[in-house]
């Protein structure tokens, strides 16, 4: 079936099998491999993307659900498309060593951005609770929590400045 949606700001139209998962569509057909697959039970969160502005697990989303929707993946998050500039949340992860092997990172960042958009400046407890659906095996979460708090504050400050 043919589906049309906005992918990282660009109109996209693709022919998909109804059984195709969004992870497969992104990774195998649209060459966007930043969205990762870390489990098969919708637990790990490495595949989190924003569907119509809300974080969802793209490994548990059928491609037809994208029809008419807006999808944002880690590749579309950057400060300036095509440049090396980072989004404030990405920058906060870099600044605070919020990643090690990098595999959970795209999902962590996408979840964190949504959390910050939803709640503004975040407390430690809100961050820890908000990351409930994202598993990291490397960092022990401490620097991720610090990163998300800093990134949320930076996003908040940037919005206030606008």
């Amino acid at each position: 079936m043919q589906i049309s949606f906005t992918l990282n700001g660009r109109p996209t139209s693709v022919d998909v099998a109804p059984s195709m998962l969004v992870t497969e569509l992104l990774r195998e057909h649209l060459n966007l491999t930043g969205t990762h697959i870390g489990c098969d039970t919708s637990q790990c969160g490495a595949c989190v993307v924003h569907l119509n502005g809300a974080p969802v697990k793209s490994c548990t989303l059928l491609a037809p659900a994208l029809d008419g929707a807006t999808l944002l993946t880690i590749e579309g998050l950057q400060g300036a498309p095509g440049s090396n500039r980072l989004h404030p949340m990405q920058e906060a992860f870099r600044e605070n060593h919020g990643l090690q092997c990098g595999f959970c990172t795209p999902g962590m960042v996408m979840t964190a951005v949504a959390l910050a958009q939803d709640k503004g400046v975040l407390t430690e407890a809100e961050v820890r609770h908000g990351l409930e659906g994202n598993i990291c095996r490397c960092t022990g979460y401490q620097n991720i929590v610090v990163s998300v708090m800093a990134g949320a504050a930076a996003m908040h400050a940037a919005n206030a400045g606008e």
């Binding site: 990774r27 966007l32 491999t33 930043g34 969205t35 990762h36 697959i37 993946t73 880690i74 590749e75 998050l77 950057q78 090396n84 980072l86 990405q90 992860f93 870099r94 600044e95 060593h97 990643l99 092997c101 990098g102 595999f103 990172t105 795209p106 960042v109």
Partner: peptide
């Protein structure tokens, strides 16, 4: 800050899969 972070943060790592 780590040299490896730019690619991981932007979804441009190169894993086997």
């Amino acid at each position: 800050k780590r040299k490896e972070d730019q690619r991981f943060l932007t979804g441009r790592g190169n894993y086997v899969s």
